[in-house]
Design a protein around this nucleic acid. Structure first.
Lengths: 260, 260
DNA sequence: TTCATGGTTCGACCATAGTCGAAGCATCGC
DNA sequence: GCGATGCTTCGACTATGGTCGAACCATGAA
C-alpha cells in the first residue's frame, strides 16, 4: 500500500516560494549563478545557498563550479516538464504568483520564456509561421518546412547553425498566459535574438518583459502577424513603458547569459 | 516581475506527507471517503479533514457529499499526470515511501493511472500502437492515424464518441516506473475499460493493480505487443522496447536503488 | 424521540524550516 | 602581495503550519 516513489519530498522542495522561483527561472536549461538565482528569488545570498543545496541534494538541480561562480541548472528536462505541469495546474486553479500588477498586461503581451518569445506576440508568431506555411503544427509537434527554412533565412536566421546544434530546432511550449503553444527550441531562440538584433524589441532589465518599439511592433506584425487583416494594432494595447536603465551585461564571462 | 502561475502553492499542497499519501491513493480513480483517506494517510480524522479542505481549496481534489459521507476524488486527470511526473522524479532521485513491498513488481507491470493503463504493459501498449502505425509519436505529441482509427474500432472502441468528447483523444503520460510514455487521454481510458470489458484483466480492489488473466495477457500481447516479425526500428526519441520488463535497470545504472 | 456514526471546527501545542547577520573560504583582478 | 567579489557555513530568531483533544454538527437508524 505504501509503496512507490515519495512524492512528498520532491513536492516539498518545490513548495517553497523561493525555491519555486529559482527552478522556474531555470526552465529552459541555461545555467544561472547562485547570485542571479538569489536575486530572482528575492532572498539573500545565504538563504539562496541553503535552498540550492537542498535542491541539489534532492536531485532536482545540478551544480557546476567554475572559478568563483556556481552555475546551477535543472538536472534534466523531466524536471522542466513536471514544472510545466505544475504551472498548468496552478493556472487552472487560479493561483498567481502575485496579484495583477501594472507590469502584468505588458507581460501578457510579450515576455521572454527563457530564451524565446512568449505571450500574445509569441503565440502570434507561431500562428503566423503556420499561416505562411513556414512550419507545420500537429498537436504539440512542430516541423519546419523547406519553404519555411528559406523564409527564415531571408529574415536573417542562420539556418545551417540551427541544424548543426544538438538542440531541437522547433519545440512547442505551452504559453501559460494564452494557454496555447508558442515556438521554443533553437529556432525560437534564434528568432528572439534576431528581434533584438534588428532593434524591433529589447529586454527590460531585471524582468521578463520584452519591449517592442512602435515601429518594431509594426514590422513584426507585418512580417509574422495575421496576413489579410489590414486593421492595425489593437487599440486597447499600448506600447509598454520603456525603462531605459541598462545593466552591465558582463557579469559572468565564463557562461555569457542570453540577455540583450 | 514575479508574475505567472504559482507553482509553489500547489507544490506545497503536495509537499506534505499526509496530503501526498491521500492524493496518491486517489490516483486509482475511485472516490474515497474522508475516513478512508485518513487511514490511508495515517492521521486522525481531524487532520485529514483539514488537509482535504486545503486540497479542495487548492483545486486539486473535489468533494461530493452523499449522506453523511464525503467522497473525495481528484479534480481531473491533469492532476494525476502531474502526480505521475512527480513520482518519476522521486524514483529517479531515489526517494521511496517505504522499502520495496511484495506488491511492487506487479505494480510495475500493470497498474491503473487514473483511468488508463500504466506500467510495463501500458508502455508496451503505446509501443505496439506505434509499431502498427495506429498512432504516430513525435516528442510528446501522439496522433491517431486513419488506419489506427479503423484498427481500434475493430477492437471495439467507440471511436465516434471519442472524437465527440471534449477531452483530447491521445495524450502522453510519463510512466514513473518505466520512465517512458504510455497512452493517456480519452483513447487510453477507452482502451483500459475495453480490456476490463473483454475480461482480459480486472482491477484488484483497494489497489492500483491491474491483474491480467493468463489468456488475457496472451491476447493483449498478441494484439498490441511486439509483433512476431521484426518490427522496423522506430527512430523516434524513445527507444522502442520489446522486453520492457528488464529495461529500467540497465538504462539507469547510476541509480542503484531500483531494487525490483 | 434518542443514540450512534462520520465529518468538521475550534483551540492549543510544538517542531520544522525559512530567514538573515556575521564570519569563513576560495577565486579573480590589480 | 593586496583588496574585492562570490559563495557557503554557522548560529540564532521567528513563524508558519501540522498535529491532536475536545466539542460541535449533520445524517441515519432504532
Amino acid at each position: 500500500m505504501k509503496t512507490g516513489p515519495d512524492i512528498a519530498v520532491v513536492a516539498a522542495l518545490l513548495g517553497d516560494p523561493a525555491r519555486a522561483n529559482m527552478v522556474t527561472a531555470l526552465i529552459g536549461g541555461v545555467a544561472l549563478t547562485a547570485g542571479e538565482l538569489a536575486r530572482e528569488a528575492g532572498v539573500t545570498a545565504q538563504t539562496a545557498s541553503s535552498h540550492l543545496a537542498k535542491l541539489a541534494a534532492g536531485g532536482l538541480v545540478e551544480v557546476r563550479r567554475q572559478g568563483r561562480h556556481s552555475y546551477y541548472s535543472l538536472s534534466g528536462d523531466d524536471v522542466a516538464r513536471v514544472l510545466e505541469g505544475l504551472m498548468g495546474l496552478a493556472a487552472r486553479t487560479g493561483h498567481r504568483r502575485t496579484r495583477t500588477g501594472p507590469a502584468e498586461p505588458a507581460l501578457r503581451e510579450a515576455r521572454v520564456c527563457y530564451d524565446h518569445l512568449a505571450g500574445d506576440l509569441g503565440v502570434a508568431l507561431l500562428d503566423g509561421l503556420v499561416a505562411r506555411g513556414a512550419v507545420t503544427r500537429s498537436e504539440d509537434a512542430i516541423r519546419l518546412t523547406a519553404a519555411g527554412a528559406a523564409f527564415l533565412a531571408g529574415f536573417g536566421i542562420d539556418m545551417p547553425s540551427l541544424s548543426r546544434s544538438r538542440r531541437p530546432v522547433c519545440r512547442a511550449c505551452l504559453d501559460w498566459s494564452v494557454r496555447r503553444s508558442h515556438l521554443a527550441g533553437a529556432l525560437g531562440a534564434a528568432l528572439l535574438s534576431q528581434l533584438f538584433h534588428l532593434g524591433w524589441a529589447r529586454r527590460v532589465p531585471d524582468s521578463r518583459l520584452v519591449a517592442f518599439s512602435a515601429s518594431g511592433r509594426a514590422q513584426f506584425l507585418a512580417t509574422f502577424g495575421p496576413q489579410a487583416a489590414s486593421s492595425p494594432a489593437d487599440p486597447s494595447q499600448e506600447t509598454p513603458s520603456h525603462v531605459p536603465a541598462q545593466r552591465p551585461r558582463s557579469r559572468h564571462p565564463a557562461l555569457p547569459r542570453h540577455d540583450v
